[in-house]
């Protein structure tokens, strides 16, 4: 008898939906996205899912697999126990469009509120130089593939819809950290980070770092350094005196 994968996939749209069960013949070397495609091909041609590169680089196939925000293309079927039911559902933080496809436009709206890179004037020889040690620090944040798994897992907006209007989310703190730490950038965004982007809402649960498929240390290298910059600007009297004295 051929072994089968046992899947529970959420089907529905903005008005509601439910999990439906599927059985798919086992094959070697499959990932969850392959099984979803098998279901599309053989049982449910109208099953909606977003995907593109199938290599963990486009960030399209984000979903929740057994409750864990993950990329479907990077979750191998041999990670599951023999006979284990695999539950696949759309990202919980964003409104669903259909089945596994969600509307992530919240993120694009937040992106628009971040002041762009504003470089220093060129040096006398007409160049702008950046040194390796400075490149290394901000390069990590450039690895982001915008899969929005960190936004999805962040309980500040996942469980508290109201906070979406005052909290940017981990993906954008990584972006803000990249800009703030950039040696050639001249924009000061610290006040904005506190007041508009709501950095204070983050309580360092570090889930964003746990789910990042690019292994970016979002909490340690972006959020906490930004929190410390906010502390220097708003909560540290010694830092305030130092700034006033121009030290």
């Amino acid at each position: 008898m051929t072994s089968e994968y046992h899947f529970r996939v959420w089907r529905g749209d903005v008005s509601g939906g439910a999990f439906q069960e599927y059985r798919v013949p086992e094959e070697e070397g499959l990932v969850v996205l392959d099984v979803i495609h098998r279901i599309q091909q053989t049982q449910q041609p109208d099953l909606a899912c977003r995907w593109n590169c199938k290599a963990g680089k486009c960030g399209s196939c984000s979903a929740e697999i057994n409750g864990h925000p993950s990329l479907m293309c990077m979750t191998r079927m041999d990670e599951f126990k023999e006979g284990e039911t695999v539950t696949v559902q759309p990202l919980q933080t964003f409104p669903v469009i259909k089945d596994l496809v969600t509307d992530v436009s919240f993120n694009y709206e937040v992106a628009k509120t971040i002041p762009a890179f504003k470089p220093k004037p060129r040096e006398a020889d007409g160049t702008r130089r950046m040194y390796q040690e400075d490149v290394d620090r901000v390069q990590e944040f450039r690895k982001c593939i915008e899969c929005f798994l960190c936004q999805d897992v962040c309980h500040v907006i996942r469980d508290h819809e109201d906070n979406k209007k005052s909290f940017a989310g981990p993906r954008f703190f990584a972006r803000l950290a990249e800009l703030e730490m950039h040696p050639l950038d001249t924009n000061d965004r610290v006040a904005l980070i506190k007041q508009k982007h709501g950095l204070g809402f983050c309580n360092i649960t570090m889930c964003c770092s746990e789910v990042c498929p690019e292994h970016i240390h979002i909490t340690d290298n972006a959020i906490i350094p930004l929190k410390e910059r906010v502390v220097s600007e708003f909560y540290d009297p010694l830092a305030w005196v130092k700034r006033r004295l121009g030290l």
Binding site: H68, V156, H160, C202, N203, T205, C207
Partner: peptide, 17 residues
């Protein structure tokens, strides 16, 4: 707040730090 990643936050209202 939350007890684990992708587990619901038990607090109804959340203002963080």
């Amino acid at each position: 707040s939350p007890a684990a990643c992708a587990v619901p936050d038990l607090r109804r209202r959340y203002t963080g730090e």
